[in-house]
């Protein structure tokens, strides 16, 4: 049985959801226009993933296999809607920034993926650690992409202009194609890094 620390660290490196499992692409591409959005999205995914992993692994023996997916997705949807309500009540500006992407956390492949691949087969304790690891890995990857796209796309970090006036921002990064290409190259870079550091 893998130790608890391995369970946690695998979420960040070996099974990094964005760069290794290549999951949860839709919000990754769209929200990372700015580092702030990316961070907000990452944190709400951690919260939802944590709650859903706990409940899914709690009911894992009760739910019959045939209705597994509808049941799990309903649990996830409940937590997402609650996060949506809490955010729009207590953090309206972050809520406006994340727009359509909060309901889409429900179909974010990572959360159902972890519920299906992990929480369904493990104890609550392990599922919590897995959720934290994968959630943190996801947030870090998202923020990294957000910083790169914001820095080169609009010449600022977290909204503060950094690159001076002479810098001509690369508008394409703020738009759809830029997101695809940046993430593609980042994936290649990480494959190279993983190979060089010898992580299978």
């Amino acid at each position: 049985m893998t130790t608890l620390t391995q369970e946690f660290s695998k979420g960040i490196v070996q099974e990094n959801p964005v760069f290794r499992l290549v999951l949860g692409m839709c919000p990754t591409l769209a929200v990372t226009v700015s580092a702030m959005n990316a961070l907000g999205m990452g944190i709400s995914v951690i919260v939802v993933l944590l709650c859903s992993n706990i409940v899914v692994s709690a009911v894992r023996n009760v739910v019959p296999a045939k209705v597994r997916i509808p049941a799990y997705i309903m649990i996830i949807a409940t937590f997402v809607t609650i996060v949506e309500m809490v955010l729009s009540a207590f953090a309206p500006e972050l809520f406006d920034a994340l727009g359509i992407f909060i309901p889409l956390i429900v179909v974010n492949c990572i959360i159902l993926g972890r519920a299906e691949a992990f929480a369904r087969k493990n104890t609550i304790g392990r599922s919590i650690i897995d959720a934290l690891g994968i959630g943190l890995g996801y947030t870090l990857s998202l923020t990294l992409l957000g910083v790169i796209r914001e820095l080169f796309g609009t010449g600022s970090i977290l909204g503060y202009p950094v690159m001076g006036t002479a810098f001509e921002p690369m508008g394409v990064l703020a738009v759809a194609p830029g997101a695809f290409i940046t993430l593609g190259i980042l994936l290649g870079l990480f494959n190279y890094l993983f190979k060089r550091l010898g992580i299978e």
Partner: peptide
């Protein structure tokens, strides 16, 4: 029955 019941309760 078990399938329907589970979905009903969770819903």
């Amino acid at each position: 029955i078990k399938m329907t019941l589970v979905l009903l309760i969770i819903g």
